[in-house]
C-alpha cells in the first residue's frame, strides 16, 4: 500500500512542485510541436550559402496559424504558388507576389488547412528551374495525399510520404521521395541531397520512381550558445535536387525542407530503464504477501 501511495504521490507531485523559469519547446513533444511545426525554424537568420540550389525559406511567427513569409533564394521569380490540401476550391491554388522580404502567404482559409505545397519557378528559353517546399500551418486540415498526387509542374520531387503533422525528418532516418516528369514516375533518375551542415549524398530512383535517402547524422555535437533558440539548433535545412533534359529543355527541380537532430541524442535509455525497474521494484511488495485464500469456488 505504502509503495502505491508513493507512486501516486510521485505522479501527482508535478502539481505542487516549484517552478523555475525555463523555455524549451521540445522537438519530440506532440502537442508542443504545433506552435513550431516542421518548416518553421523560428527566428533563424537567412541561411548562409550552403548550396547553390534554389530554395524557398519559410518563416512563421509564434502563435500565427494563418500567415507565413517565404523567401526565395537562388532563383528569380515574381511570384510563388501555394497549393492547399483542402479548403474552398478557388483558394486551392493561389499566387503571391514576391516582395523584398519574400512572399507573404496565407493558409487556405483562416482556421483551416494544414499541409500546403509551395512552388517558385524560373523559366528561360532553354531551362526551367523550380524550387519547392511544404509548409504546415498548424490548423486542422485534410491529409496531403491528394495534394501530393496531383502534378504541379513538369519535373517534381514528391515526398512519399511527408512527415506527418507534429513530426519531422530526422537525422539517421530513411525517407522516400517520388520523382515525376509530367506526372509520370521517372525510373533511374539521380537525386542529390545536400544539407546545411555540408553533407552530400545521392540516390537513384527505382522502377516506381522512388528514391530512398538517409538523413545524415551531421549535426554538430555541441550547440553554439546564444545566437539562436534551442529550437533552431535542433533543426537544419536540406535540399534535394534532380535534373533532366526533356523536349529540348533542361529541367532542374529542388525540394527543400528542415530536418532535426536525432532525439536519441538528448535522451538516455539507461535512465529510462532505471526508472522502469524502480517501478517494478516498488510493485514487488504487492506480489509477496498473499491474500488469505477464501476459496471463491465455494460460491458455485
Amino acid at each position: 500500500m505504502k509503495t502505491l501511495i508513493l507512486a501516486l504521490a510521485l505522479a501527482t507531485s508535478g502539481l505542487a512542485a516549484p517552478v523555475f523559469a525555463q523555455h524549451d519547446h521540445g522537438a519530440a513533444s506532440v502537442t508542443g510541436a504545433a506552435s513550431a511545426p516542421l518548416g518553421r525554424p523560428a527566428g533563424r537568420p537567412p541561411a548562409r550559402d550552403w548550396t547553390k540550389l534554389p530554395l524557398l525559406l519559410g518563416k512563421g511567427e509564434r502563435g500565427e496559424r494563418a500567415r507565413a513569409t517565404i523567401a526565395v533564394r537562388g532563383l528569380t521569380a515574381a511570384s510563388v504558388t501555394v497549393h492547399a490540401a483542402d479548403g474552398p476550391a478557388e483558394r486551392r491554388k493561389v499566387d503571391y507576389p514576391v516582395g523584398a522580404a519574400g512572399a507573404s502567404i496565407e493558409s487556405v482559409a483562416p482556421q483551416v488547412g494544414n499541409y500546403h505545397w509551395i512552388v517558385a519557378r524560373e523559366e528561360s528559353a532553354d531551362t526551367v528551374r523550380v524550387a519547392s517546399t511544404a509548409w504546415y500551418f498548424g490548423n486542422p486540415g485534410d491529409s496531403p495525399k491528394d495534394l501530393l498526387a496531383v502534378p504541379k509542374h513538369e519535373l517534381e520531387i514528391v515526398p512519399a510520404p511527408l512527415p506527418r503533422e507534429h513530426r519531422s525528418y530526422r537525422e539517421a532516418e530513411k525517407w522516400r521521395f517520388l520523382v515525376r516528369l509530367d506526372g509520370k514516375p521517372l525510373a533511374g533518375q539521380q537525386v542529390v541531397m545536400e544539407t546545411e551542415f555540408g553533407s552530400r549524398s545521392t540516390a537513384v530512383t527505382d522502377a516506381a520512381g522512388h528514391a530512398t535517402l538517409v538523413f545524415p547524422r551531421d549535426f554538430k555535437p555541441v550547440a553554439q550558445e546564444g545566437d539562436e533558440g534551442s529550437e533552431a539548433r535542433r533543426r537544419a535545412r536540406f535540399v534535394l535536387s534532380t535534373e533532366k533534359e526533356a523536349g529540348g529543355k533542361h529541367y532542374l527541380t529542388a525540394f527543400n525542407h528542415a530536418y532535426s537532430q536525432d532525439p536519441e541524442r538528448n535522451r538516455s535509455l539507461g535512465w529510462g530503464a532505471a526508472f522502469g525497474i524502480l517501478g517494478m521494484v516498488a510493485a514487488t511488495p504487492l506480489l509477496r504477501r498473499r491474500q488469505p485464500n477464501e476459496g471463491a469456488s465455494g460460491h458455485a
Binding site: A7, A11, A17, V281, A283
Partner: peptide, 23 residues
C-alpha cells in the same frame, strides 16, 4: 522509454511515466 536529458521537468515527468509503467 528513453528519458530527455538536459530538461529537468521533462526528465522528471518521464521518470514518473517509466516508474508507472514498471509498477
Amino acid at each position: 522509454l528513453a528519458l530527455r536529458i538536459g530538461d529537468d521537468w521533462k526528465f522528471g515527468l518521464g521518470a514518473v511515466a517509466n516508474t508507472l509503467i514498471g509498477f
